[in-house]
């Protein structure tokens, strides 16, 4: 009956979202009066999960699962859910979790709600709040099936520490062959990704050209942030498509979103509105972004950004 949670890792280390979904699963388990079981695939040290409320870890070690494969991973989770007789399965909103969840839903005959931002308001009927209309609204939805899958929106629940300790158990599911073979992975490993980032520094057409992104990258580095951009910036080829955020790009649910030289068009705002604190830096005080932001600086990015970098460096030095 325990709540099953898929805790994602990379190169043996848990991602931050793993701790967030574990915290969420713990809250749901408390509501249901049950425990939390995590599934960890090829992770080195699983004890850390206990800190976020996990009681038991099903440790899967299998060379065939070295690269993520939706079909194989969905099958592993299905076997784990059946093993635990789980009625609720919790996953994150990472690209990988969103890839496997619909497959798992069909295999478990489970209803699936994605982009869920709060713990269930009721467990019977099982009622969750999810974003819809690309963050322009929320939808309250019930999941009516016996087994339920909840996809938790990134940074929506946060990390909640619990003083439990997790026991580990080896779990050896069968791994089916998948009709999709990963040939190569091309991934920047030394940069924070938009999906995982707590802070995102984003710039728009106001920056005039790709040669001016040095200061944006520097600001991001000082803050430990990911870099992003508006749609025209990626359409013009100034920045890679993978940095395009907004309604038709990547969604951003960061704790802090800093928009530099971005006007704040409705399609841009829709995609980033789930971020908690928004800062805008723009020469035009009439730019629509000022209506959506918490803090704003009316000024020239070419002066404000370098100055802000210096102030932040000083702040970091003082608070180190």
């Amino acid at each position: 009956m325990s709540v099953l949670v898929y805790t994602e890792s990379e190169n043996g280390k848990f991602k931050k979202t793993a701790f967030e979904v574990a915290s969420y699963a713990k809250a749901v388990a408390d509501q249901l009066g049950t425990t939390v079981t995590a599934v960890a695939v090829n992770a080195d040290d699983v004890s850390e999960l206990g800190k976020y409320g996990v009681d038991k870890v099903l440790k899967v070690s299998n060379a065939d699962l070295k690269t993520f494969n939706a079909k194989s991973y969905a099958s592993v989770l299905k076997q784990a859910a059946e093993n635990e007789s789980s009625k609720v399965v919790v996953v994150s909103s990472s690209a990988d979790s969103k890839y496997l969840a619909p497959l798992l839903a069909v295999n478990l005959d489970a209803g699936y709600a994605s982009n869920v931002v709060e713990v269930p308001s009721s467990t019977s009927p099982f009622t969750v709040k999810r974003t819809a209309f690309t963050n322009k609204a929320f939808n309250i939805t019930t999941i009516d099936t016996n087994v339920k899958i909840v996809g938790v929106s990134n940074n929506s629940y946060g990390l909640v520490e619990n003083s439990a300790s997790a026991t580990a158990e080896d779990f050896a599911p069968s791994v089916p062959t998948s009709g999709v073979t990963v040939e190569s992975v091309d991934k920047v490993t030394d940069k924070v990704t938009i999906a995982d980032a707590e802070i995102v520094v984003s710039a728009g057409r106001g920056l005039k050209g790709p040669e001016n992104w040095g200061m944006i990258e520097e600001l991001a580095e000082v803050l430990g942030a990911a870099t992003a951009c508006s749609k025209p910036v990626s359409d013009l080829g100034w920045r890679p498509h993978s940095e395009h955020v907004g309604q038709t790009g990547k969604p951003v649910a960061a704790n802090l979103y800093i928009a530099i030289g971005i006007s704040g068009a409705i399609q841009h705002l829709a995609g980033i509105n789930a971020s908690k604190v928004k800062v805008v830096i723009n020469t035009d005080p009439e730019a629509p972004f000022f209506k959506a932001a918490d803090y704003g600086v009316v000024g020239d990015a070419f002066e404000v950004v370098p100055a802000l970098i210096e102030k932040l460096k000083a702040f970091k030095a003082a608070n180190a």
Binding site: Y112, A137, T141, T142, D144, A293, D294, Y295, G296, V297
Partner: peptide, 22 residues
């Protein structure tokens, strides 16, 4: 079907921006 929509909500309206001098 497996899920049912109960209702919709709009995000709470935001307070005014705090402007900081450049």
């Amino acid at each position: 079907t497996e899920t049912s929509s109960v209702k919709f909500e709009k995000p709470a309206s935001k307070g005014a921006v705090t402007l900081v001098d450049a």
